[in-house]
Every structure is written in structure tokens, then in C-alpha cells.
């Protein structure tokens, strides 16, 4: 059974230019202990799924329909106390900007102490930082966030996210703001620690290669919907959705020497309401008439595709 689940989730942000629909019936499941990659371009809505799981949406956001469940319980229906317990004990978060996530006024030791109890200087705090392979844990405990490099601060954030042994960690572009050369170390750390602990990990990233390397299943988000979900190897070796195919074609890595990469033409859509057809229709090389007038429904077994052209298998309920 799914531990984290977004069910036909619709989220809209109120902006000065009217409502912007970030999620347009997005559905996604993460089983306990599973490492799921959520891939999508900036603005695709993948971050919104992550924050919606703990009801951490910003003030101008509204869940118009659908539901979010953690451990089978609706997060939207939770009372304050239950919601706090969910955020505190059940879920861990790692965000893009580690230094911005930490409290600038408190030393790392104190912040870690807030999470697990205990005073700065306790052996236990040191052990938490040793787990995230910080070279000099004692010194880091005494440091303020601004004294850390991005990579070190992200290690601290990972230690904080895992401190209370959550059942799932939601990592939203945890390496995007870091120096390119430390990214893979940080991801490796995050994945290996969650795996060891049997914690589910939802890794939101635009880095296809990292997702392929670390995730067991991958969900591709486009235009506020999850357009394709499949086991990682299968998704990369036989992508079904035209967007996924275009994305893999555009990325350097699979081309022959001297070949020119083919970027996806056009730009991602900004939705202002429910979209009548498939949001990719304007950029899709193989769109047919149905694509612009009819919402594709999921074609599913283990490999879900949201496309009119996908080979029709069993239709899921």
C-alpha cells in the first residue's frame, strides 16, 4: 500500500494575474521504504506535490480538489496536533537552499538539539553529524549556518531531516543550489542513509542522471500532472510518454559524436484552469486531434502513462 499518496490533487496559487494552477489532478504514490524520483522542469508542479504532503503550501495556495494521504490518513483533514506530529515525526524535509532552511541565529548544535532533545556538546549530537559524514562534527556543532559551505549545510539539513527517524523523507531539489562538484556526494549520502533506515524517499529533481542512478521508480511531472510513472530502468530504457522521450532525447549523454542535441521546442505551459487536453500538446511531435480536446486518462499496469497514444492496456479505476 502507498505510504505517501497524492490523489487527483489540484492546487491553485492566487497571483496578481489570476489563479495559476500548479497541479492539475496529479496522482502519485510512494510505498514505504521506496525511493521515488519525481522529475520535471522548473514550474512543472513537482515542488507543490512535496509541500502538499505536509500541508506546507504557501498562503496563496489552495487545494481545489483531490486529497493527500500519508499512511492512509488524509493530511487535509488532520487537526493541528495531528498535523504537527506528522511534520515532526513522520516526515522529514530537505530543501533546495540549505543555508536558508537553517535558523540563522542559532548554532547548529542547538538546532539539532531542538529536534532530538539534548544539549549542545552531547555525544549524541556528534553522532548525528558523523552519520552525515561531516569531517569535523564538533566544530560544525558550534558553527552558525552562515559559516558553513553549501555542501556542509546540506549535510546538516539531512541530519536534521533524519534526526527523528521519519518514515519518509521528501527532498526537493536537494542539490540544485549546491556547487556542481559536490552534488553527487550529497545525493549518495541522502539515498544511502534513507535506504539503511528503510525510510521512503521522494526525490524531486531535474537531474535525470541522478534520478536514474538512485531511484527505484520514477514519476515524470509535466503541466501539473504526473504523465508517466515506471520503474526507473524501464522508464529510461523504454519511455512511453512523448514528453519523457523528448526529455531524454534533449539531454546530453545518449547522442553519437557529432550529432546535434534536439531541445524540446517551445516552453512549458502555465495553466490558469483545468486543461482540456494534454498539456504537452503544443510541443508534442506526435499529437493527434484528441490531444487538444480530451484529457488523457491513465493507462496502467506497472508503467502508468497519461497519453492518448500510449498502448492501451488495462484501464485503472
Amino acid at each position: 500500500m502507498a505510504f505517501l499518496e497524492a490523489r487527483d490533487l489540484v492546487v491553485e496559487y492566487a497571483t496578481r494575474r489570476g489563479p495559476v494552477r500548479a497541479l492539475d489532478e496529479a496522482s502519485l504514490e510512494v510505498a514505504a521504504g521506496e525511493v521515488v524520483g519525481v522529475v520535471g522542469e522548473s514550474g512543472s508542479g513537482k515542488s507543490t506535490i512535496g509541500v502538499a504532503l505536509a500541508r506546507l503550501l504557501p498562503g496563496n495556495a489552495r487545494v481545489s480538489s483531490g486529497d493527500v494521504l500519508v499512511g492512509g490518513r488524509s493530511v487535509l483533514a488532520m487537526g493541528d496536533e495531528e498535523l504537527r506530529a506528522l511534520r515532526r515525526d513522520t516526515l522529514g524535509f530537505v530543501f533546495q537552499d540549505p543555508i536558508g532552511t537553517l535558523d540563522p541565529t542559532a548554532r547548529i548544535g542547538r538546532q539539532l538539539g531542538w529536534m532530538i532533545g539534548g544539549k549542545p556538546g552531547d555525544r549524541e549530537l556528534v553522532e548525528h553529524l558523523e552519520r552525515v559524514r561531516l569531517p569535523d562534527p564538533e566544530r560544525t556543532l558550534r558553527a552558525f549556518p552562515h559559516q558553513l559551505s553549501g555542501g556542509m549545510a546540506q549535510r546538516v539539513s539531512i541530519a536534521l531531516a533524519l534526526a527523528r527517524a521519519p518514515q519518509a523523507v521528501i527532498a526537493d531539489e536537494p542539490t540544485a543550489s549546491l556547487d556542481a562538484s559536490v552534488r553527487s556526494e550529497i545525493l549518495e549520502l541522502l539515498v544511502s542513509l534513507t535506504r539503511e533506515a528503510g525510510t521512503a524517499l521522494m526525490l524531486m529533481s531535474h537531474d535525470l542522471r541522478a534520478v536514474r542512478r538512485f531511484c527505484t521508480r520514477v514519476a515524470v511531472v509535466y503541466g501539473g500532472r504526473v504523465v508517466e510513472t515506471a520503474p526507473a530502468q524501464e522508464l529510461f530504457s523504454s519511455p512511453q510518454h512523448p514528453y519523457t522521450r523528448a526529455l531524454l532525447d534533449a539531454a546530453p549523454g545518449a547522442e553519437a559524436p557529432g550529432e546535434t542535441l534536439r531541445p524540446i521546442a517551445g516552453i512549458p505551459p502555465v495553466l490558469h484552469g483545468a486543461f482540456r487536453g494534454c498539456a504537452f500538446v503544443g510541443r508534442c511531435a506526435c499529437a493527434v486531434e484528441a490531444c487538444s480536446v480530451e484529457r488523457p486518462v491513465v493507462h496502467s499496469d506497472d508503467h502508468d502513462v497519461l497519453c492518448h497514444l500510449a498502448p492501451v492496456k488495462e484501464k485503472a479505476a
Partner: peptide, 17 residues
Amino acid sequence: DEAVSALDVSIQSQILN
């Protein structure tokens, strides 16, 4: 210097080209 590293893959190829 890592000029395309932080970009979405679909954008990476545009900038590389």
C-alpha cells in the same frame, strides 16, 4: 564554468547548442 549544470535538461541542450 559549470555553465549548464544548474539548468533543466531540456534547457541544457539549448544552451550547449
